[in-house]
Structure formats: C-alpha cells, structure tokens
C-alpha cells in the first residue's frame, strides 16, 4: 500500500515529460547539444558522488592508526586540487562549442518573432523578398539553418522552444539573434519564459518542423489570400464590428497591425496563443469575452455581439485556409 502511494507520488515528477515541449525530447541540433552536455554532467556527477561515498566509507571504517596524515594530505592534493582542475578544464573544452552560435550563410531563412502581451507576432522573410506576417505559430524547415530575430514590443518576454534550442530574451528596443537547426519533423511547442504579465503562463505557440520542400510550398501558398476571405455573413460582421481596426486578413481591406494577423486562422492548431483548441465554439466565446480565457488580454470584449453573431464570425475565421 505504501509502495503504491510512493510510486503514484513519484509519477508526479514525470508529468513534465512529453514529446512536444521538453528539453529532453529534442528535435534540433542546439537542444541536442545541450542535452548531451546535461547527460554527461549528470552521469559524471553520479560517478564523482560514488567515489566520494566510497572514500568516506573507507575513512570511517578504517581501524585507528591505519590512515596517516600524509596519505590524507595527498588525497586532498589529488582529489581536491589537481583532479578537479583537470576535470573542469575537460568539461569546459567539451561544453565550449555549445556557446558558439551556428554560422548563418546568406540565403538562410530568417524568422522575426516579436513578443507582445500575450502573443507572438511572426514574420518569415520570403526567398524572393518581402515578409510574410503570421502569428502564434512558428514553422521551420528541417535540416536547414534558421535565424530567429527576436524582440519585444511592450515588456520583456523570452522565447523558448525547449526541443529546438536554448532560451533567448525578447527585449523592447533591441533585437536578439538565435540561430538553430531542426532535425526531426513534427509538431512541438514553445513558451514565454520571462514573466510578462497576468497571462504570462498562457503565452505559448505551436512549432511545426517540416520537410524543406513542404515548408517552402507552404510559405509560397500562405501569400495567396484565403479562399472565402470576402464572403458570407461572418465576413460582413467582421467588417461591421471593426475587427479590421486591429487585425489583418490578406486579400481584404483589413490590414491593421495592432493584433494578431488572422489571414490563415483556419490553419491554426490552437486559439489564443497555444492555449485552446481552435473550435468554432471556443473562437466565438473568445471573441465575446477574451479575458475569460486570458486575464489581462489586450483585446477588448465584445459582449454586445449576440452568441449567434460571434459564431458567424468564428465560422468565417475557421474558413480562412
């Protein structure tokens, strides 16, 4: 009985493990490097502790008079002075390469990400020039070097895709660069790791690593306006309620840059920056009362919309593919 309770308690420590958002389940070269160092350090630490315990054991159990002062001083010299110096030097040399940023070549993909309370403004530099604006989702081609240019708009945020690379702060008025390479296609997750306000814990994003051919096809396709961007009751309500005062949808007159770009909302994997399933019902609820899902959100509530009107707008947005 007690064993069962202990095992259930220990299970709680595993709750952080998943393959979407974990520095141990890596899909990029940078995170892999960090993971290798981590494993080497942990294994090494266990080994050193075992030696320490062994020496302690021997020292305590040895009969009186068997250990001399000279032996002791020699132990201190080797295991306390010379040994650690060599070991730490080896570890330093072993870990130093991880600090060198990956070298970028002209033609490598650059992705601009701007942190805002509480979402991500994303811009892909197109191969042919120009920037494709998107939000709350980062797509990267596998096997290619990608440079993230990171900044913040309002307060300091921090950009972290645990499976891809280390953290990097997003500081207003400054651009930090993070270069990484994804190696395994799949769907992953990134988060904000610098406390940025009420909904800091609700500020995440989806990361999709794709084969390069598929990625560049996707990038080219994104520039085309979504089908149905101008049709239907939802499109009319979107315009009549001034949603275009803050949001942009390619192929329409809505081109404001205050809130997230909604051009391809229908393709999004989550709603509200990585926190909710983007169903029609959830989207409609978010439009009427975004603060219920994200306290402190910058978007105003629209309680004046009837449920049916909000639903019509949600249906329209879901159709933007």
């Amino acid at each position: 009985m007690r064993q069962a309770a202990v095992s259930v308690g220990l299970l709680a420590f595993l709750s952080g493990c998943n393959r979407h958002q974990s520095a141990l389940a890596t899909f990029g070269a940078e995170a892999e490097g960090i993971r290798t160092i981590t494993i080497a350090l942990v294994v090494g630490a266990v080994f050193i502790i075992a030696i320490m315990v062994g020496i302690y054991w021997r020292a305590v159990r040895a009969p009186e008079g068997q250990l001399t002062h000279k032996q002791g001083m020699r132990l201190v010299l080797w295991l306390g002075g010379i040994g650690p110096t060599i070991l730490l030097t080896v570890i330093l040399i072993f870990a130093l390469p991880a600090m060198r940023p990956r070298v970028t070549a002209p033609g490598d993909l650059t992705i601009h990400v701007e942190g805002e309370q509480f979402w991500w403004r994303v811009g892909y530099e197109r191969p042919g020039g120009g920037v494709l604006v998107a939000a709350n989702e980062v797509r990267v081609p596998v096997g290619r070097t990608v440079a993230f240019e990171l900044t913040g708009r309002d307060v300091i945020h921090s950009f972290w895709i645990p499976g891809l690379a280390g953290k990097m702060d997003m500081i207003p008025g400054r651009t930090n660069s993070l270069v990484a390479r994804a190696d395994k296609p799949g769907r992953y997750r990134g988060v904000c790791t610098e406390f940025c306000g009420l909904s800091h814990a609700l500020m995440a994003f989806d990361v999709i690593a794709m084969e390069p051919a598929a990625f560049y096809a996707w990038l080219a396709d994104q520039s085309r306006p979504a089908a149905g961007a101008r049709q239907g009751q939802g499109a009319q309500l979107f315009a009549a309620n001034g949603c275009g005062g803050c949001h942009a949808i390619r192929g329409t007159e809505h081109d404001a840059r205050i809130g997230p770009d909604l051009s391809r909302y229908g393709d999004r994997l989550t709603l509200g920056a990585g926190i909710l399933p983007p169903t029609i019902e959830r989207t409609a609820d978010f439009i009427r009362a975004p603060q219920d899902a994200k306290p402190g959100v910058r978007m105003p509530a629209y309680p004046q919309l009837s449920h049916q009107e909000a639903r019509a707008i949600a249906v329209y947005l879901k159709g933007l593919k």
């Binding site: 009549a240 309620n241 001034g242 275009g244 005062g245 803050c246 205050i258």
Partner: peptide, 15 residues
C-alpha cells in the same frame, strides 16, 4: 495599440 475611431464608427458599421 489604439485603433482608429473610424474602424467602428463609419458608414456600414454596427456602431
């Protein structure tokens, strides 16, 4: 992050 008044207060808008 202030949208224009005209985003909502203009002909054909709901406000």
């Amino acid at each position: 992050q202030l949208p224009a008044c005209a985003s909502c207060h203009a002909p054909n808008k709901a406000y």
